[in-house]
Amino acid sequence: MENPPYLRLVNEIAVQFTHRPFEESAEVVAAHVRKFWDPRMRGQLMAHAVAGGEGLHPIAVRAAELLQQQTVR
């Protein structure tokens, strides 16, 4: 089955920041998703991460955790 769009999109964001420290990258990705993504897509991403995060880039997994914790504005 083809990956859902949000998974492809968040992974594309995550790979842009692999040159930066892991936690900093995750914060940047989470802030971007928080600022620009549709709420339902954010919800799908967080639900996917909670369900195991299969197929998510590690930075995206951590970004989803930060979003879940609502530590990103």
Binding site: P5, K35, F36, D38, P39, M41, R42
Partner: peptide, 10 residues
Amino acid sequence: AEPGGLRIPN
């Protein structure tokens, strides 16, 4: 108030 919304491809 919630940030974001659907872009065209979304």
